[in-house]
Simulated assay, not measured.
Amino acid sequence: MTATSSDRTPSLTANGFAIDRSSDAFAELVPADELLDDPDELRAAMADRGYLLFRRLLDPDVVLAARREILLKYAILGEVDDRHPVDEAIAGDGSGVATANLRAFSESVRTGQHYLAVTDAPAVIRLQETLLGGPVKTFDMRWPRFVRPGEGCGFHCDGPYMNRGTDRIFSCWIPLGRVRREEGALMLLENSHRSERLHQGYLTADADRDGLEWLDDDPAAVRAAYGTRWLSTDFEPGDVLCFGMHMLHGALDNRSLNGRCRLSSDSRYQRMDDPADPRWNGDEFDGHGGRRVFYPGLGRWNNEDFQDEWKHVDERGRLVIANDS
Rank of each mutant, 00 (worst) to 15 (best):
P135K: 11
M141Y: 11
R197A: 11
R178H: 14
E236S: 11
W214M: 03
W214H: 12
M247L: 15
D266W: 00
R209N: 12
V240N: 09
N254P: 09
G150S: 04
R260Q: 10
T204K: 13
C242W: 09
F155N: 01
S171L: 12
G201H: 05
E182K: 01
D253H: 03
F155V: 00
R178T: 11
P219I: 03
W214C: 02
G244S: 06
F146H: 05
V179M: 00
L248T: 04
M162K: 12
S232C: 03
T204A: 13
R181N: 04
P160E: 14
G165N: 10
D218E: 00
D208V: 15
L188R: 03
P237R: 05
W143P: 11
G154E: 01
M247K: 12
S265T: 09
V136H: 01
C157A: 14
V147F: 04
W214A: 00
E196S: 08
D210H: 03
W143M: 10
S256T: 06
L252T: 11
T166S: 15
V240R: 12
A205V: 03
W173S: 01
V179E: 01
G244W: 03
L176V: 08
E236N: 07
V147Q: 05
S171F: 01
Y269P: 09
M245W: 12
